[in-house]
Nucleic acid binder design. Structure first.
Lengths: 106, 106
DNA sequence: TATATTTGCAACCAATTAGTTTCATTAATT
DNA sequence: AATTAATGAAACTAATTGGTTGCAAATATA
């Protein structure tokens, strides 16, 4: 059971669920209405998302509202950080090159 | 064959390969030396990474050097953008709340 | 209380995945 | 020319995955 956040966002249906509940909490039935799949399949995705703490649930009577745990998304951002450094650095190098060319032309 | 970038980074070995070749190009053998797996397994990962254009190859004699296609990583950043907006917004709301409390105290 | 609704969970199935073993190709070395 | 090294690709296997069907539990409604 590999259950980390990268595995969680690998599935396109799960990314769609994340997008759906990012702004408002929704019940499994309501979420399933948006896809060509069964409620049970959505339920399984929600379980995976819950297990890696990307999603939190709140019970209201017999309904359970699922919503995005936005802070968990920062973990991906944190991972990206090291690569962002690289591409920003390359951009700066290009920038330097361009200004050098400019100076040479002058 | 689902072969998008999210599926590519889902595997921890592939993320390790990405980290390894981010700064310098490496041959499959050299990469495999860093893991408890066979060269062939690494080769398969490299194929997947190449197919989704996260990695580029450069032949030099009988060796093939693999390196990270850093620009492709920006796609993940682009996807994260929508969620970054949300968490920054929440942070601002908290900020507003705190300054309101400050004002009330005064 | 009986019935309907919302949900999670277990059992099962087909497809996919990560890995291994084996083989063919190409380039370097002797 | 023969051998060694570096690599990709195909065939196979075991494990995992996404999905379905069916069922049980809990809550709401008649």
């Amino acid at each position: 059971m590999r259950r980390d956040i990268f595995q969680a966002i690998a599935d396109p249906t799960r990314r769609a669920i994340i997008a759906l509940i990012a702004l408002q909490a929704m019940t499994p039935n309501a979420i399933a209405d948006n896809f060509n799949t069964t409620r049970q399949a959505v339920s399984k995705h929600l379980r995976i998302l819950t297990e890696c703490e990307l999603v939190k649930q709140e019970q209201q009577g017999r309904e359970i509202y699922y919503s995005l745990e936005i802070n968990k998304m920062k973990e991906i951002d944190k991972w990206l950080e090291q690569y962002r450094k690289i591409w920003e650095n390359r951009f700066n190098q290009l920038d330097d090159l361009l200004s050098t060319i400019k100076k040479t032309k002058r």
